[in-house]
Design a protein around this nucleic acid. Sequence first.
DNA 1: CGTGGGCCTGTCTA
DNA 2: ATAGACAGGCCCA
Length: 287
Amino acid sequence: MECGDVPFWLDVTLCCGQVFRWDKIGDWWYGVTRDKAFKVRQFGGKFEYVGVKPAFAEHYFNLDVDLQKIIDSVNRDSHIRKAAREYWGLRLINQDPWECLISYICATYKSIPAIKHMLNNMARKFGEKIHLDEREFFTFPSCEKLAAATERDLRDCGLGYRTRYVLETAQRVRDTQINLEDLKKLSYGEAKRALMEFPGVGAKVADCVLLFSLDKTESFPVDVWVKRVILNHYSDKLQAEFAKRLSTKKGLSSGDYERLNTWGRNYFGKYAGYAQEYLYHFERMSI
DNA sequence: CGTGGGCCTGTCTA
DNA sequence: ATAGACAGGCCCA
């Protein structure tokens, strides 16, 4: 799919599980990021949007990065080539770090529909109401708003055991006055360690936040699907013993996570996160 | 340091 | 229909 002379496939970009608060109504995708509601569509080969300025939309969808160059740089084998050809135009989105952090804290041990439900509940209860096309939308609540919420009100959003993680993370962000955007200035390793200080943030959640909101394209989140990708297509790259143990165990120990994560970053390089998204989506769609 | 069990609750399947 | 399994992990023993 092309957008002008830039490869971009909007539907896949918004469907591939990186971002949760977009919904398609007719041709248009409606979404909220930071304090803005906007709608976007790809129509007749053109990318159109209402509610934000061109620079905002182009930055949000990373349209200014050279996708061809990125895919060339992760082009290591026939499987990644196949995934890249199939979903050519899938782009990583520049999310707001705060919303991204809370989203992935909530995402543990949940399916995507359930995650969307939780986040929308939180926005409805604690966010600001805004309008577009006579429709109501809600901004994602600020850290002050969530930090001041009662445990009961948050729990009622369906957060379950994540309630105290969200509450304590919000309180810590508020109390330390940390600007999450500043983590962009740190190295991948430093920023990851900083994120993992927050309750409810382990290696996987940190890697998602780094990749989707802090410009760390070398991040390589490993979830059950990526583990599946590696076992199904890259097991020959791992030590036989290790691959065997992985395939017989259900979850991922922190040591196993570290090992797969490091493998991915070394194997695919600076843009390992793009490779991860293509592989992840390809695997999910081939069930 | 590595490993296993528990955890809230919405969805999906049988 | 309604119970039961499972979900894009994290934390603590």
